[in-house]
Structure formats: structure tokens, C-alpha cells
């Protein structure tokens, strides 16, 4: 295809979108509405995940207690083994002396009863930070099996519960997002089908004058992309405006002191990306496919 034809096709697509104002407007509104429904859920699910991870991050520590009979080299080799685990982000060794200090602190005034005791009866331990909350359970199980480990404990009891909540939230939100995405694609491509249907005669005429299928189809694809693009821009502006407004209100403490949203700037690429990809791809591919039926003349 020659450059002048490409130029013509792009120009024609833009002009058509403009001249079929009413249909274009209807399509843009529908694209915008579908994207907004999708976007709102995306933001809600991202925020829930953020909240849960935030809570968990603070509690993502476990402590591995060594057998008190281990000698120093055995403890060191245990430390190496622990560090090898892929989900471990940090390991801190608690020596017998530290353990004794800790015990004394725990017993407070009664700590005196420990005086005179040698620290050797206390086990050494490791305080371990885990990278991903979801894996905490399996990591604990793995460490329990290690030679020389006496016990593994959580610093907080509800970590296990939270990690399964985090897991299921992610699964469910991905499922809902997929459903919403399919519904959006379905609605948008149906709207495009309608606009193409309204112009089937036009397509027919072009065929009679000897236009190739590609020549007829490309301006429609350009038109679909433009409509999808405009829909994406509008939905993004609306989303950004409302998100920042709500975020501002909530962080002022209307809902509760402790509730902060993800900063829009850290997820802005997600939102822009998904809007533009869905909008333009569905717009372009949708009209390319819908027009096919009318090309057989």
C-alpha cells in the first residue's frame, strides 16, 4: 500500500468519526462507561491488596528456635540453610546472651529469679523476615523439618489467617476483573457492530466501485481506535479526578484515621495502560471484525 493511501485511510477514519457524530458519541459513552466499571473495580481490588499486604508486612516475621544442645558450628550451618530459602529476606541471629536478656525483660521484676543461671539452657534463635506473605506457611513448614530446629513461632498469631485472605482476595479479584473485562469487550464490540450495521450500505457501495476489503476496512479500524482512545482518555480523567478527591477526603480522617489509599501515582500506569489497551484494541479489532460480514458482495 502506498503512503498516500495510508494517509487517505487515516484521514478518512478521522473524518468518518467526526461526521458520524451521534454514533461516535454513543460509542464513546459506552466505551467510557465500560472502562469506568472495570477501572473502579481494579482500583478497589488493588487497594484491598495493598491494605492487606501493608498489615502483613509489619508482621511478616517468624522466629526459628534452635535445639539448645547445638554447638556453634551447627548453629552457623543452620543459619546458612535458612538463608538459602528463596522467600527469606533477612535473618538475624539471637544469641544465648540476648535470649537471656529478653527473658529477663519479659519477666520484668521477677527477672531476678534468673540471676545466677547460665544462659546455656536457652536456645539460640533466628528472627526471619519473609518476602511474600503468601508463602509464610510453607516456609514455616520447611523450617520445622530442618535438622536441629526445635520449634518455629510466629511473632503474631493472625499471620496465617491474613495470608490466606490475601491469597483469596487476589484470586477473586482476578476472576472478577476477567469477567468485567470480557463484559466490557462484549459491550464495546457490540456497539461497534451497530455503527457498522448502520453503514453497511456504504460498505456495499464501496465494494461495487471496486474497493478492496482492506481499503474499506482500514478506515473503520482507524475510526474504532479513535473512539476507543477518546473513551480511554475520558475514563482516565474521570477516574483520576474522583480517585484523588476521595483519597484526599478519606485521608483527612472522615472514614477513620487508619485508612490510607495507594498513592494514585504508583498505580497510574496500570490504570492508563489497561484503559488504553482495552479501549483502542477493542475499538480497532472490534470494528475490523464487525465489518467483515458486510464485505461479501
Amino acid at each position: 500500500m502506498k503512503i498516500r493511501t495510508t494517509k487517505y485511510i487515516i484521514k478518512d477514519g478521522i473524518i468518518n468519526a467526526y461526521r458520524n457524530k451521534l454514533m461516535s458519541l454513543a460509542s464513546i459513552i459506552i466505551v467510557t462507561a465500560s472502562l469506568l466499571v472495570f477501572g473502579i473495580f481494579l482500583l478497589i481490588s488493588v487497594n484491598i491488596k495493598y491494605k492487606i499486604d501493608d498489615v502483613m508486612q509489619k508482621q511478616l516475621q517468624i522466629e526459628v528456635y534452635c535445639d539448645s544442645k547445638l554447638d556453634e558450628t551447627q548453629v552457623d550451618s543452620l543459619e546458612v540453610q535458612i538463608q538459602k530459602n528463596q522467600y527469606v529476606s533477612d535473618v538475624r541471629k539471637v544469641t544465648k546472651e540476648e535470649a537471656l536478656e529478653r527473658c529477663k525483660k519479659l519477666l520484668e521484676e521477677n527477672g531476678k529469679i534468673l540471676e545466677g543461671y547460665d544462659q546455656s539452657f536457652l536456645p539460640e534463635s533466628f528472627i526471619i523476615k519473609i518476602k511474600d506473605p503468601e508463602h509464610i506457611k510453607s516456609v514455616v513448614e520447611d523450617f520445622k523439618k530442618l535438622q536441629g530446629v526445635d520449634d518455629v513461632g510466629f511473632l503474631e498469631d493472625n499471620v496465617v489467617e491474613l495470608s490466606s485472605i490475601s491469597y483469596w482476595t487476589r484470586i477473586i479479584s482476578i476472576l472478577i476483573l476477567i469477567i468485567l473485562l470480557s463484559v466490557s469487550i462484549f459491550i464495546i464490540s457490540n456497539t461497534i457492530k451497530l455503527t457498522v450495521f448502520a453503514r453497511r450500505r456504504e460498505i456495499n457501495i464501496m465494494k461495487y466501485i471496486g474497493a478492496t476489503d482492506l481499503f474499506i476496512r482500514l478506515p473503520f479500524i482507524v475510526e474504532g481506535i479513535i473512539i476507543g482512545f477518546i473513551g480511554a482518555v475520558i475514563s482516565f480523567v474521570i477516574t483520576y479526578y474522583f480517585y484523588t478527591t476521595i483519597e484526599g477526603q478519606v485521608s483527612k480522617g472522615i472514614v477513620g484515621e487508619n485508612f490510607n489509599f495507594i498513592d494514585i501515582n504508583s498505580i497510574v500506569l496500570y490504570v492508563i495502560g489497561s484503559y488504553f489497551i482495552i479501549g483502542t484494541m477493542v475499538g480497532g479489532i472490534g470494528s475490523g471484525i464487525s465489518i467483515r460480514k458486510y464485505l461479501h458482495v
Binding site: 456504504e202 464501496m206 466501485i209 474497493a211 478492496t212
Partner: peptide
């Protein structure tokens, strides 16, 4: 079809294009 000029009873002009564009379209293709 490009090698044949064709005229129909119902004209079959492209409604979204001007007279000039309708004629130019046959050359653009």
C-alpha cells in the same frame, strides 16, 4: 469492478461524503 464504470437506479452515493469526495473516492481506491 475498477475496469467498469457502474451506475445504478438508486444512485448509490456515499452519504457521508461530499460530491467531490464521492468522485475522488473512485480514484483513491
Amino acid at each position: 469492478r475498477r475496469s467498469i464504470g457502474v451506475v445504478f437506479q438508486d444512485f448509490r452515493l456515499l452519504p457521508g461524503k461530499t460530491v467531490y469526495e464521492n468522485v475522488a473516492f473512485a480514484m483513491q481506491i
